[in-house]
């Protein structure tokens, strides 16, 4: 079981949380100019890295708020937690 540090509530079991996948995918601003290919990329395509992953979580059974985390998907080790709007922390290269 993973253990997360909610930036608002502190350390809790993963079963209280829900992961929402890759973080920092900005909604495109020039949507009227976008073709199907660009829309498809935005909606469906993901980096899915083996290593450092910036991802979104919600604390469903707690404060219900959104936050971001950095995790190494090869080891499941969390490297950082931060609030939405905060700058993504730089973490060491993939171990």
């Amino acid at each position: 079981m993973l253990i997360l540090d909610c930036p608002w509530c502190g350390t809790r079991d993963q079963s209280e949380f829900h992961c929402h996948g890759e973080a920092h995918i900005a909604r495109p601003t020039d949507t009227e100019k976008m073709d199907d290919k660009a829309w498809g990329e935005y909606v469906f395509f993901r980096t899915n890295p083996k290593g450092i992953h910036y991802e979104r979580w919600t604390h469903d059974h707690g404060c219900k708020r959104w936050f971001n985390a950095v995790r190494n998907t090869a080891t499941d080790e969390f490297l950082a937690f931060y609030k939405p709007g905060e700058k993504a922390p730089a973490v060491g290269s993939d171990q």
Binding site: M1, Q14, G21, E55, T75, D76
Partner: peptide, 10 residues
């Protein structure tokens, strides 16, 4: 329900 390559699971 989270991305992982750890071959473990929770």
């Amino acid at each position: 329900a989270y991305n992982s390559y750890s071959q473990r699971g929770s």
